[in-house]
């Protein structure tokens, strides 16, 4: 179980998170919901160790993560699909996947498993990542993360700006990972997606986490979405 308790962090002097706590169990999808600038990406980055914590702690299966150097977080089984994909643009598809495989020292078997999820990438292995279409780039970002055989998957707006069929494919893979027992933290603005794949929803507002509710409760109280996102 991934546990974030009471963390405070930010960029230099600018504090973004003020005591956020949450937890995700294996096989569970926790969705972070909040306006732009609320601190969702900052939360994912601090889990990856990319931002130093001012206070609070992050642990995975009882082991403290926030005291580890950032490059060791991935080795604990945490994989990150950042917003805007951030592939290694000048490296080929195969090399991007290779970087993911290196994290746990995985080889051929893992690569095949990942490519079965995204067969389109198989035809593009020698192409540079920057030459792929948006949808293919997102597939590659997912593939790179899954090549680390993660137990926790952090997805930051994985379907942003994609065509419906591509959104469906990404959602399908996300659900598949959930069913395989991966704990998933998902930042997503599409409410219908949230309601279909999330188990629980954590609202993030001004760097705080005022409330976490189950998806079924959320469906019964739609005014909460209004309250935190300003839409209904």
């Amino acid at each position: 179980m991934l546990e974030v308790s009471n963390i405070e962090t930010g960029y230099g002097d600018v504090q973004v998170l003020y005591g956020v706590s949450l937890s995700v169990k294996p096989g569970e999808v926790l969705c972070l919901l909040g306006r732009n600038g609320a601190g969702k990406t900052t939360l994912l980055k601090s889990i990856m160790g990319l931002l130093p914590l001012k206070s609070g702690s992050i642990s995975f299966n009882g082991k403290a993560l926030h005291t580890e150097p950032a490059h060791l977080i991935a080795k604990h089984g945490i994989a990150y699909v950042p917003q805007g994909r951030r592939l290694f643009s000048e490296l080929t598809v195969a090399q991007n996947i290779e970087i993911g495989l290196m994290v746990q020292g995985r080889g051929h078997q893992t690569r095949e498993r990942v490519l079965e999820l995204f067969p389109r990438l198989r035809e593009r292995m020698k192409q540079r990542a920057e030459t792929l279409s948006g949808g293919e780039q997102q597939m590659l970002a997912m593939a790179r993360a899954l090549s680390t055989e993660p137990r926790v998957l952090l997805l930051d707006e994985p379907t942003e700006g994609l065509q419906p069929s591509m959104v469906a494919l990404i959602d399908e893979v996300t659900l598949k990972m959930k069913n395989e027992g991966v704990a998933i933290v998902l930042v997503e603005h599409q409410l219908d997606t949230v309601l279909t794949i999330a188990d629980r929803v954590a609202f993030i507002e001004n760097g705080r986490n005022p409330e976490t509710v189950t998806t079924s409760d959320l469906a019964l109280t739609p005014n909460k979405v209004m309250q935190y996102l300003g839409v209904s």
Binding site: Y80, P82, E90, T148
Partner: peptide, 14 residues
């Protein structure tokens, strides 16, 4: 080369 292209992502990928 991965470090050159995006050092933060390189860190996130071990």
């Amino acid at each position: 080369r991965a470090t050159q292209l995006d050092s933060e992502m390189a860190l996130a990928y071990g």
